[in-house]
Amino acid sequence: MSTVADKLAKKSTRKTGGKQVRLRLVYVDFWSAVKLSFLGAVALAVVTMVSFFLVYLVLQATNVMATAEDFIASLTDNAFILTEVVGLPQVMAFAAVVAILNLIVFTVLGAVIAGIYNLAVKVTGGLLVGFMSN
């Protein structure tokens, strides 16, 4: 037979679930999205500059540049000198141009995605996000 005490003991051993909250993301602030995508693009620009510099140093340290220069010199009878065209200042200038273009493109892309999401929310009703407390 089951007593009241047994029923209470069974209830107390059960784990209680955390509180669950379900929210809809129905609007993304345009300027916040632009600022966030700009900050992400700045981080990517720094990574681009550092990676170009490191790749150049690795190619110099492993003598790949010297080997390529010897090969090109043998093909062109020393008419083309690779180190004049692919020096550290030229590589870093190219990296800066790539980083600036990426900065512009990613910032605009973040703005466009925020605008497209805000338009799509009018049709779909938004993104349902669930949170649960522990």
Rank of each mutant, 00 (worst) to 15 (best):
R24I: 08
R24H: 10
R24C: 04
L25I: 08
L25R: 02
L25Q: 02
V26G: 10
Y27Q: 13
Y27V: 06
Y27E: 15
V28E: 01
V28G: 02
V28L: 13
V28I: 14
V28N: 00
D29Q: 10
D29V: 06
D29I: 04
F30C: 01
F30Q: 10
F30D: 07
S32D: 09
S32K: 15
A33Q: 01
A33F: 03
A33R: 01
A33M: 05
A33C: 04
V34P: 00
V34I: 08
V34H: 00
V34R: 00
V34Q: 00
L36Q: 12
L36H: 11
F38L: 11
F38D: 00
F38N: 02
L39W: 14
L39V: 08
L39T: 07
L39Q: 12
G40N: 08
G40F: 13
A41K: 02
V42L: 06
V42F: 04
V42E: 00
A43M: 09
A43L: 11
A43K: 05
A43I: 11
A43P: 00
L44E: 05
L44R: 07
L44W: 13
L44V: 05
L44K: 06
A45L: 04
A45F: 04
A45C: 06
A45H: 04
V46W: 03
V46C: 05
V47G: 09
V47A: 15
T48Y: 02
T48W: 01
M49F: 11
M49V: 12
V50N: 02
V50G: 05
V50K: 03
S51A: 15
S51G: 08
S51P: 01
F52A: 09
F52R: 03
F52K: 04
F52N: 02
L54D: 07
V55L: 14
Y56D: 10
Y56K: 05
L57W: 09
L57V: 07
V58H: 03
Q60D: 15
Q60H: 09
Q60C: 06
A61W: 07
A61H: 07
A61D: 12
T62P: 00
T62M: 11
T62R: 03
T62S: 13
N63M: 11
N63H: 14
N63S: 15
V64M: 10
V64W: 08
M65Y: 12
M65E: 08
A66F: 08
A66R: 11
A66G: 14
T67L: 15
D70E: 14
D70H: 12
D70M: 11
D70T: 14
D70S: 15
F71S: 10
I72Q: 00
I72P: 00
A73S: 15
A73L: 07
S74F: 02
S74M: 08
S74Q: 14
S74V: 06
L75F: 12
L75R: 13
T76L: 02
T76S: 09
D77M: 03
D77W: 03
D77T: 06
D77N: 14
N78C: 03
A79V: 08
A79H: 09
A79M: 10
A79N: 13
A79Q: 15
A79W: 05
A79L: 12
F80M: 08
F80Y: 10
I81Q: 15
L82F: 10
T83L: 06
T83G: 10
T83A: 12
T83R: 12
T83N: 12
